[in-house]
Amino acid sequence: MQIFVKTLTGKTITSEVEPSDTIENVKAKIQDKEGIPPDQQRLIFAGKQLEDGRTLSDYNIQKESTLHLVLR
């Protein structure tokens, strides 16, 4: 499924993921596309910071959901 990751600069990254993918996994995909190390990434969805060990389905993230990427 496709999800969108919006950066603070307003850029939107499209990523191909599975509901069973972990947040860590998603951060790795963002690193592949943007070159941002996962340890600098914080992903936010519905006002919550997403934890690395959890999966997209844990957070009820569905296709075409938009996550927000904040850098630390």
Rank of each mutant, 00 (worst) to 15 (best):
E64G: 15
I30P: 01
I3F: 02
T22Q: 03
L56F: 04
E64H: 14
K63M: 09
Y59V: 01
V26W: 01
Y59M: 03
T66G: 02
L67Q: 01
K48F: 10
S15Y: 15
P38A: 15
R54Q: 07
D52N: 10
K29F: 11
E24F: 15
K33W: 08
G47N: 06
D39S: 13
T12Y: 10
T9K: 11
L69F: 03
F4R: 06
L69P: 00
I30G: 01
R54K: 13
K33D: 06
E24N: 08
E34W: 15
Y59C: 01
H68N: 08
R72A: 13
F45S: 02
D32L: 14
R54D: 04
T55F: 06
D39A: 12
G35F: 04
E51I: 09
K33R: 10
R42E: 12
V70D: 05
A28M: 14
G53T: 10
F45Y: 12
D21W: 13
Q2I: 15
G10R: 04
L56N: 02
Q31T: 09
Q40V: 11
Q31S: 13
I3T: 00
Q62P: 09
T7M: 15
I30C: 01
L69W: 01
I30N: 01
V5P: 00
F4K: 07
Q40H: 11
E64S: 11
Q49F: 14
E24T: 08
I61N: 01
A28G: 09
E24W: 15
E24P: 02
A46S: 09
T7G: 06
L8H: 13
R54I: 06
N60M: 08
D21S: 08
S57P: 02
E24S: 12
D32M: 13
A28Y: 13
L43E: 01
V70L: 13
G47P: 00
L43G: 00
R72F: 12
V26R: 01
T7S: 07
S20E: 10
E16Q: 12
R72T: 12
F4L: 06
K27L: 11
E64V: 03
D39C: 12
R42F: 13
L50N: 00
Q49L: 15
P37W: 06
G10I: 02
P37E: 07
E64A: 10
K33M: 13
T7E: 03
I61T: 01
S57C: 04
L69I: 05
Q41G: 05
T66I: 13
I44R: 05
H68P: 00
H68R: 09
K63T: 12
I30R: 00
L67K: 00
S15E: 13
E51K: 09
S20M: 10
I3S: 01
G10A: 04
L8C: 15
I3P: 00
V70G: 05
E24Y: 15
I13T: 03
